[in-house]
Amino acid sequence: MTTRAVAETLDALRTVVARIEADTSGALGAEERIVLGVPEMDAALGGGLRRGALHAVSGVSAAGAVAATGFAVALAVRAGRRGRTAVWIRQDMSGRETGEPWPMGLAELGFDPDRLVLVRAPDEAATLRAAEAALACPALAVTLIEPFGRLAAFDRVAVRRLALAAGRSGVPAIVVRAGAPSLAAPVGFSAAETRWRVAPAASPPGEVDWGRPRFHVELVRNRRGGLGRWTLGWNGHERGFAVAAGNAGSFGAGAEDHGGRLAEPPRRAGAAAGAGGGLRRAG
């Protein structure tokens, strides 16, 4: 194939992709926002998480696995709609390594286990196929996707398909990498509209409601707005986030600290950049 033919083929492919994106941009619910309830976060996100989009959450280390999953579940609770079912697709190894979702723990987080379909997939390819099938159903409230391993099947093309499927149906897709390295710059996840790093935050001494889930959260990618860091508490009864008092955000050794601030103001995307409350029980 000549250089000119290759260039023409690439131009044709770009045209097709642009047409697909244009067709999905006006999908029902695609531009609807999921309000998180923390003004600084919602402002950075342009009003909240976009519903018809792909979002990625990861723990900053193995110790942050439950925190990352807890934060992803909290996002799913905020995305919930009365009477609609959520789908959680998990690769088998995730359950073996980090434990299985526990109905009582989910209920404590405000997630109705009766409105959850849990799908167990044997490998990455099956996880990807199940995710695409779920995102094709506009009647769902949210789709959680939890693969495991090196994610060879989740290349740029595959992840782009998931993002487009979420745009067509208006169903938010949340990929959670509980025990994986940070998603700050993963191969294939450039199609994610937002990417989050999560670490557990300790409850301060003397807190009345000791043990409520708390997270150090960093928004490391936002295709439509700013970035930022927050230390958040989650109230499963009220199903809402709040900026946590008395605990400045930290992402462990080598991470940039907040200098004692509870929340870092949102910044533009181009600028330099507790646990899940009984969520899991060993299988």
Rank of each mutant, 00 (worst) to 15 (best):
M1A: 01
M1D: 00
T2C: 04
V6Y: 00
A7D: 05
A7Q: 11
T9R: 15
D11H: 06
A12Y: 04
L13D: 10
A18F: 03
A18W: 04
R19W: 04
A22W: 02
S25E: 14
A27E: 14
E31I: 12
I34D: 10
G37A: 06
V38E: 09
P39S: 13
M41F: 06
M41S: 08
A43F: 04
A43D: 11
A43L: 08
A44F: 02
A44V: 02
A56R: 11
G59Q: 04
V60E: 03
G64I: 01
A65F: 01
A72Y: 01
A74Y: 03
L75G: 03
L75E: 08
L75R: 03
R78Q: 14
A79Y: 00
G80A: 15
R81E: 14
R82M: 06
G83Q: 12
G83W: 08
T85K: 13
W88Y: 08
W88N: 01
D92P: 00
E97W: 01
E97C: 02
E100T: 08
W102S: 06
A107T: 03
E108N: 01
E108W: 04
F111K: 01
D112Y: 02
P113F: 05
L118G: 05
R120V: 07
D123H: 06
T127H: 00
E132R: 14
E132K: 10
A133K: 13
A134F: 07
L135W: 10
C137I: 15
A139L: 15
A141D: 12
A141E: 09
I145K: 05
R150L: 12
A152C: 11
A152Q: 15
A152W: 15
A153F: 07
A153C: 06
F154G: 09
F154T: 12
V157I: 15
V159C: 14
V159Y: 00
V159E: 07
R161E: 09
L164A: 14
A165T: 09
G167W: 09
G167L: 05
G167H: 11
R168K: 14
G170V: 11
V171A: 06
P172L: 07
V176T: 15
A184N: 07
A184K: 04
A185K: 08
V187C: 10
S190T: 12
A191W: 10
A192F: 01
A192L: 05
E193L: 15
W196E: 11
R197I: 12
R197W: 08
A199C: 09
A201W: 13
A201L: 15
P204W: 06
G206T: 12
E207L: 13
D209F: 11
D209N: 11
W210P: 05
G211K: 07
G211R: 13
R214M: 11
H216L: 09
V217D: 05
V217H: 07
G226P: 12
G226E: 12
G226Y: 10
G228L: 08
N235R: 07
E238H: 07
A242T: 04
A244D: 15
G249F: 07
F251I: 05
G252Q: 04
A253L: 13
E256C: 00
D257Q: 07
H258T: 07
H258Q: 03
G260M: 03
L262Y: 01
E264S: 07
E264H: 06
P266S: 02
P266A: 01
R268E: 14
R268A: 14
A271H: 14
A272H: 12
A273V: 11
A275K: 11
G278N: 08
G278Q: 04
R281Q: 04
G283F: 02
G283N: 04
